[in-house]
């Protein structure tokens, strides 16, 4: 590894096992702390600088490109089993900056900042001219589809009444005319069959999340709804630190909420920052 003594840092190869190990710790940290959207996987290490740290250790400054997977953020499925969202599904990339401390052989994330953005419509249509593009999350068809799908799911449920946590994806499909949505739900203290006023139903203190995929087909005089939800057995603990070390700290209060229906399905999230 070349040393850059005059610059104060060294620059290992982006594909060095050393760099990749640090990047993987960063990705694991990201997925352990992200509270909305989808898990992301490593796509490319853009830059790496390694700074000496006083009194001991080194700090890796990494720039990483990620890709959205199809696993919801709170899905306990290991990242290795999550599929990358393909270009035809309208892929979403993430640009991340990490600072990772290596001390006594232990890696600790000190800082993480990511910004996600969908592929351009032009690029998607280049690969797949008829593929549905991502719609705005506040698109009336998307909002309606989620509402109808959740009502359908609750009407068929023998268990808890589920409330919407987040709409994570929406696509308008031209043929057949329909709207495809993905959204997260959480169980309440109400039984689905007994609910008269959902406002009186509260999320359980020990959250039980689920993730739904639904399509609402437009028909003359009505609509057809197909909805399938996966309820997660174990409640993941968002923000639970896997890394150890006295300098590790995460301030979840700093974690922004999901993008509130912006002009694009774009989000940025600051996972934690403390040195």
């Amino acid at each position: 590894v070349p040393l850059a003594t005059d610059l104060g840092y060294r620059q290992p190869n982006c594909d060095d096992p050393e760099t990749e190990q640090v990047a993987q710790v960063a990705i694991d940290y990201l997925n352990s702390n992200v509270l909305w959207g989808y898990k992301h996987t490593l796509n490319q290490i853009d830059k790496v600088k390694v700074w000496p740290r006083r009194p001991m250790g080194e700090v890796y400054e990494l720039e990483i490109d990620t890709l959205e997977t199809t696993c919801y953020a709170l899905d306990p499925t290991p990242l290795a089993n999550c599929s990358v969202r393909q270009l035809a599904e309208h892929a979403v990339e993430g640009d991340c900056d990490f600072h990772v401390l290596k001390m006594n052989g232990q890696l600790t994330v000190l800082f993480a900042k990511c910004h996600s953005s969908p592929d351009s419509a032009e690029d998607v249509l280049k690969v797949c001219p008829n593929c549905p593009l991502l719609a705005l999350l506040n698109d009336t068809h998307v909002v309606h589809a989620v509402d109808v799908a959740l009502k359908t799911f609750n009407a068929q449920s023998n268990g808890s009444y589920y409330k919407l946590v987040e709409t994570s994806r929406g696509q308008r499909v031209l043929l057949p005319p329909s709207t495809y949505v993905e959204f997260a739900v959480a169980a309440t203290d109400c039984a689905a069959k007994d609910v008269t006023d959902p406002a009186n139903c509260n999320l359980l203190s020990e959250k039980q999340y689920g993730f739904c995929k639904a399509t609402v087909f437009e028909k003359v005089g009505g609509e057809d709804v197909e909805v399938a939800c996966t309820l997660f057995q174990a409640q993941p603990q968002p923000g639970a630190m896997k890394e150890a070390g006295p300098t590790t700290a995460v301030d979840l209060a700093e974690t922004p909420r999901p993008p509130v229906l912006g002009a694009q399905m774009v989000g940025a999230w600051l996972v934690g920052a403390k040195m």
Binding site: P2, L3, A4, T5, D6, L7, Q11, N13, C14, D15, T19, E20, T41, L42, N43, Q44, I45, D46, K47, V48, D65, L67, V84, L87, A91, V92, E93, D119, D123
Partner: peptide, 25 residues
């Protein structure tokens, strides 16, 4: 792969960015 060479210092050879694991968006 893009290969960057830093000149005018001892930073030397820095083969970054690394490989693309899936596809570029």
């Amino acid at each position: 792969h893009e290969v960057r060479v830093t000149v005018g210092g001892s930073a030397g050879f820095s083969p970054c960015p690394g490989r693309i694991r899936h596809f570029k968006v």
